[in-house]
């Protein structure tokens, strides 16, 4: 048994899983509040990564260097992704708040298609190299074949985001309003919660988190193109369902479990069928445990 290999698969799975978790948080928050799968969420993640890449490019050519660039690029990515998320909700979902579910879903698919092709036409269809701006930590030298410093940053950021989000939802007024809206939108409205604002804010937060994930993974993998959001979005959705859609800890747990199983599957079984595996996993969960690992069983309301 090759322990180093096993350990590197474990760490790789943790990296993947963290990114899935960051994207899945956005899915699960939006689903919790308006019971809609925001199909365009993966695209927001991609737009975040592109914005960061553009910012890095401009700043590098202007003569900046080092960690400052990374921070500015990350802030730009988060701000723009949040802005896109907000606009997306205003255009594609708000007018459909009282429409049948099918309409909102088709509108979401349309938005995803639109954003992908918007980036493709405005930028390029090719893969672009994404510089790795996270410095190699000296203390990681001996284990460099198992875990890289960029991965360490991914773990740390995921943990931090999860912590902040939990604090926000648990202890702030806004968090209370969000929980109330998720439980019963009409009742929340009657109690004086500005539901439209809560929904907008949910999109903003979810998008910002997705963009964080986008920048981190782009800098770890080293290249991006307009299509990265599609598969990542679907995988993250699988993670959200696995954890129990609507549950924040569930999204993180689901992301990690999916990341690990995928990593071990590709490492020991087959890398050709990696994506097939994720989809079969989804079908399996939906059949045997539709409420996910941490989700509550939902009654069908009439």
């Amino acid at each position: 048994m090759n322990w180093d290999y096993l350990l590197s698969l474990f760490m790789g799975g943790l990296t993947r899983g963290s990114i899935y978790a960051l994207i899945a948080l956005g899915y699960t928050m939006v689903y919790g509040i308006i019971t809609l799968i925001n199909f365009a969420h993966g695209e927001i993640y991609m737009i975040g990564a592109f914005t960061a890449l553009i910012a890095i490019g401009v700043l590098t050519l202007a003569g900046w260097n080092g960690t400052a660039i990374l921070l500015i690029a990350a802030v730009a990515a988060v701000v723009y992704a949040a802005a896109y998320g907000w606009t997306l909700e205003r255009i594609a979902y708000r007018p459909l708040r009282h429409a049948p579910r099918l309409s909102a879903l088709i509108s979401a698919i349309g938005m995803s298609l639109f954003l992908q092709n918007y980036v493709r036409m405005a930028q390029t269809a090719n893969f672009l190299p994404f510089p790795n701006l996270i410095p190699e930590f000296a203390f990681l030298k001996p284990v460099a074949h198992i875990v890289r410093s960029s991965e360490l940053v991914i773990y740390a950021v995921t943990a931090l985001v999860m912590l902040l989000l939990t604090l926000l939802v648990r202890f702030t007024r806004m968090g209370k309003a969000m929980r109330a809206t998720a439980q019963d939108r009409d009742m929340a409205m009657l109690s004086g919660v500005d539901v439209d604002r809560v929904i907008s804010l949910t999109f903003v937060i979810g998008s910002a988190i997705a963009a964080t994930g986008g920048v981190l993974i782009a800098s770890h993998i080293g290249q991006i193109n307009f299509y990265i959001g599609f598969l990542a979005g679907i995988k993250a959705f699988v993670a959200a369902v696995l954890g129990g859609i609507g549950s924040l800890p569930g999204a993180v747990l689901g992301g990690l479990v999916l990341g690990w199983t995928e990593s071990f599957f590709t490492g020991y079984v087959s890398s050709d069928y990696e994506d097939v595996f994720a989809f079969l996993f989804l079908v399996g969960i939906l059949i045997f445990r539709p409420s996910g690992l941490l989700g509550r069983k939902q009654m069908e309301k009439v």
Binding site: L96, A104, I106, S107, G110, M111, F114, L115, N117
Partner: peptide
């Protein structure tokens, strides 16, 4: 993409 959104 735009068509899908606008139609809906």
């Amino acid at each position: 993409g735009a068509l899908l959104v606008l139609m809906m």
